[in-house]
Design a protein around this nucleic acid. Structure first.
Lengths: 248, 248
DNA sequence: GCTAGAACTTCCGCTGAGCGGAAGCAATCC
DNA sequence: GGATTGCTTCCGCTCAGCGGAAGTTCTAGC
């Protein structure tokens, strides 16, 4: 038979990680072939490694015969120190905002040219929300994203402005207009969006400051801003200040 | 030099998983030696694999020179379908309980002979709480645990009763007494604990039923039950019924 | 029921990625 | 200075891993 033809310089570890990271928000479940293709591995190699990962509890077979991330990886992943101080400190303040507004509340940080969502409390109203804890979205079309972008280094802003993808008909895709908005965000200490990411969803967000650094953003998603933009902003500012103070 | 002396029959995958699962609640950060020992690997093997895992973002170096679980594993782990329907459905009801009581609220399921915490909302009061999302605790000394144990199969109950570890001076360690309590839990539809897991913390919990099966438990942790045990139980029962109905 | 195709599983001989003891290095303590 | 602890590098042996190919099961369309 053929013998070993693996790409030299690769490791089993890298292949295992390629398999694990083949899963994402849109692909929580994958068949073997899809998994192999997304990981860039030959089918039989993927088959063996996936079997070992299932044995170790890192993956599980789904009822429909595919594969998904397993319990073992879930509880190990939760141990990751991803802004854990910020998340711990912020939790009670986010609860307050949620209790006061009954809207979907977000805590997010900037991850290079994207927003990374750290916490989310789902609101009561049926406003469509696409964010997921642990996933990222573009900076230019979400409330927390605009806040983080407005206080990001110039080179980050430049890179974002160079690629303003249209997500909905209302997404701001003109660099000049967005720059104006960012200036207003810095002045007013608050950002808003209206159906720029998701139709039927508007948002308000404010920065969380540690000293004079903006380290995160808190925001809410609602169906309309007509009624109570000010009330929402006030609740968020109270929370943001509380979080900032608690961060010391 | 020596040459290859690896334990036959083991795979790189299993060694990688051994390294990842060396981390737990009590060991969120580990030095290389500790990591190697906990994974049962020779130091130099661990050194190489850990380096590859760091390159892949599965682990990160901490400021103090140790290792911790990385961002990559965090967001992959969050994709795991661990009771995800239950968690999604339960979230708004848990919010209600939290808003009404301002106490620490838990959603938990039974994982063999332990409670697995799925969700937690931290309360305002400074009541000590040891539970962590993704981690497990004994069934016999927590509120949600007693609920789940009371409705567990007989063989699970037998195994738990055979090993009632004392955690605090108030932990119930007499099988007979615990059996009486479990009977009362089934009759009254509610379990309580008083400093049986953590000094200074009491709890109330009720079962979540899907049809006639108990599939989970919701509970609150407070400093004392003297005042409002009934109010807490009522709030929990409303939530548990709502969750059960939503599960269909 | 039959056939076509896709998806999954098993086989097996070649080989270089992985292995780990040992030596080297760095920081900390007494 | 010497001892201890902990991390990093080295290197030649060897078997775990590799993947093309063949075999098997599942699904769909007719």
């Amino acid at each position: 038979m053929a013998g070993n033809t693996a790409v030299p310089g690769t490791t089993v570890t890298s292949r295992v990680l390629a398999l694990l990271t083949a899963f994402d928000e849109q692909h929580r479940e994958l068949g073997l072939s899809a998994l192999a293709e997304r990981a860039g591995l030959p089918l039989s190699t993927a088959h063996r490694l996936v079997g070992e990962l299932v044995d170790g509890g890192a993956l599980v077979r789904t009822p429909s015969g595919g594969y998904a991330v397993g319990r073992r990886l879930w509880d190990v992943g939760l141990l990751a120190p991803v802004e854990s101080d910020l998340r711990r400190v912020a939790e009670p303040f986010l609860n307050d905002v949620h209790a006061a507004t009954r809207a979907t509340v977000h805590l997010a940080v900037r991850d290079d040219v994207e927003v990374l969502y750290l916490e989310r409390m789902t609101g009561r109203a049926s406003v469509p929300v696409v964010s997921q804890i642990g996933s990222t979205l573009p900076l230019h079309c979400t409330g927390v994203g605009k806040v983080l972008l407005a206080h990001a280094p110039v080179d980050v802003q430049r890179r974002v402005l160079a690629d303003l993808r249209r997500v909905t008909p209302y997404t701001v895709t003109q660099p000049g207009l967005l720059l104006q908005q960012l200036e207003r965000v810095r002045r007013s200490g608050m950002a808003t969006t209206s159906e720029e990411m998701t139709l039927g969803a508007c948002s308000v967000a404010v920065p969380v400051r540690r000293g004079d650094q903006v380290v995160a953003a808190v925001g809410v998603v609602v169906a309309s801003l007509r009624r109570d933009r000010t009330r929402l902003a006030t609740a968020l500012q109270v929370a943001a200040q509380g979080i900032g103070r608690s961060l010391g």
